[in-house]
Amino acid sequence: MKIIAVCGMGIGTSVLLKINAEKVLKMIGVEATVEAADMATARGAAFDAQIVLTTPELVESLKGLNAEIISIDHFFDLEELNTKLSKALL
């Protein structure tokens, strides 16, 4: 199971999403690798990914990928991520 967290520059929100996603995965007991990427490398990185985590503004630009795109609004609240990831994975 491969998850990609994408933001514009690959060091800010993508990393926050990665950290939180790893916490949630641990909580729900699912094994997966989470990689942070920027928009430029997202397509390549998402080639073999099942899920792409990103922010609402970037969803449009990521359309057409094989992976399921999940948009997250809250970076400091695991509830939203938990709900959306669980739905996609379980």
Partner: peptide, 23 residues
């Protein structure tokens, strides 16, 4: 540039922005 291209996605929580560029 990041905000010009991608919009204000850097406002990560109410009242808090995390400005950053490309490594």
């Amino acid at each position: 540039e990041a905000v010009e291209i991608f919009g204000p996605y850097i406002v990560i929580a109410p009242g808090i922005a995390l400005a950053h560029g490309k490594p």
